[in-house]
Design a protein around this nucleic acid. Sequence first.
DNA 1: TTTAAAGTCAACTATTTGTTGCTTTTAGTT
DNA 2: AACTAAAAGCAACAAATAGTTGACTTTAAA
Lengths: 214, 214
Amino acid sequence: MNAKTTAVAKAQAGDRRTNGIQRQGRAAKVVASVLRATGEELNRVGYANLRVDEVAERAGVNKTTIYRRWPTKAVLVSDTLDSHFQTERPMPETGSLRGDILAYLSNMVTLAQTSMWRGIFTALSGRTDPEVEAVARKLYLRERAFRTRLVQRAIERGELPRAVDAELIGDMFSAPILRRLLTFGENVERDYIEAVIDVTLAGAAVAGVRNHTA
Amino acid sequence: MNAKTTAVAKAQAGDRRTNGIQRQGRAAKVVASVLRATGEELNRVGYANLRVDEVAERAGVNKTTIYRRWPTKAVLVSDTLDSHFQTERPMPETGSLRGDILAYLSNMVTLAQTSMWRGIFTALSGRTDPEVEAVARKLYLRERAFRTRLVQRAIERGELPRAVDAELIGDMFSAPILRRLLTFGENVERDYIEAVIDVTLAGAAVAGVRNHTA
DNA sequence: TTTAAAGTCAACTATTTGTTGCTTTTAGTT
DNA sequence: AACTAAAAGCAACAAATAGTTGACTTTAAA
């Protein structure tokens, strides 16, 4: 699926007539440049209007070069998204669940304001190809797990009752924010974020919150 | 923008040599057939892969006929969405806010399971054209206002404190459900819906929930 | 200096959106 | 029943863009 991986693997294999791994410097430069250009174009025109020719031009590279590495536009975008989700975000450590959630959501809103991430968010909303959908799903599950850990820790510290469904609480404080960020690229004010957190945590604190099975 | 409206207006205008409104029966049949076919194709292949030729074939109509009424694919889809949002949904009247919200969300989940609405939801997520985006925004605002009214009524009945932000509460019980429905077409179980409602209402009941400005 | 991987260039195919001119059908009017 | 104008059908287009191919050039490592 990932043409870059394929190319690297082929280079590493190298038969008798091959002199080992080569051109890594040049290849790395091209890959980095194309992925960056894809992200920028994504931001400029969105997924549906992304033109491979324009990505090539912005990257200072020939269209053919892109097609030799990435078989389709979908794979190119999918790889671009992937490359930006490599870095694991650090778990917030503010001392309170409320502070941790606020840090998590503020970080998300900040990211959504950078041009690169706007492009990525655009692609995630407008996805229509299986490859891109797969990346979106992976990211979604990763973020959900991250939020669940955040809440679970707080339960273990005794900040919330044991009966609380950590995954559900994670959904509840993130969904209204994500919906506004992703659906129309709306800005989200800090007051709104805090209000969402307050209602969620007040609701979670009430004993007897039932578990759901999912 | 809406080519159908334009055509009807032209027919009604009618100069000396025109014999008034004509062919309404035929025109209506074609419009209905094309809009239905568009919804069905939307469900089958999604917005990005929608082919006007295939819509025409499914509608039993020539491609040219579609282009004469709807100038672009985006307008066709936009009109299709519009035509399915005409009917105002009745306000639930179960006697309690919890019941009303449950009815509202259950109805939404049920709609999302029909093939026609799956298509519409697909288009709403994958929108990339201004016309389609405009319809999506209109629908979003309408639903939000509907939910706000639902909560506001309950506040006036004394079910929730006056200080509660009705719009925020509406966002909070709907966003997690909509996110699952729209983002990946996931099914949403009744337990999950009830859990979301319980946490939201418990949180809202706590006095001193701050208002946000938005 | 040699060599093979990787990039460039230009020309190509295939698909799909949207257009145009002409012909045919249809439903209301006479 | 014949007439007429709107609207549908049909076939042949143009334009944009994804993706391909083969011949040639550049690059970095041995």
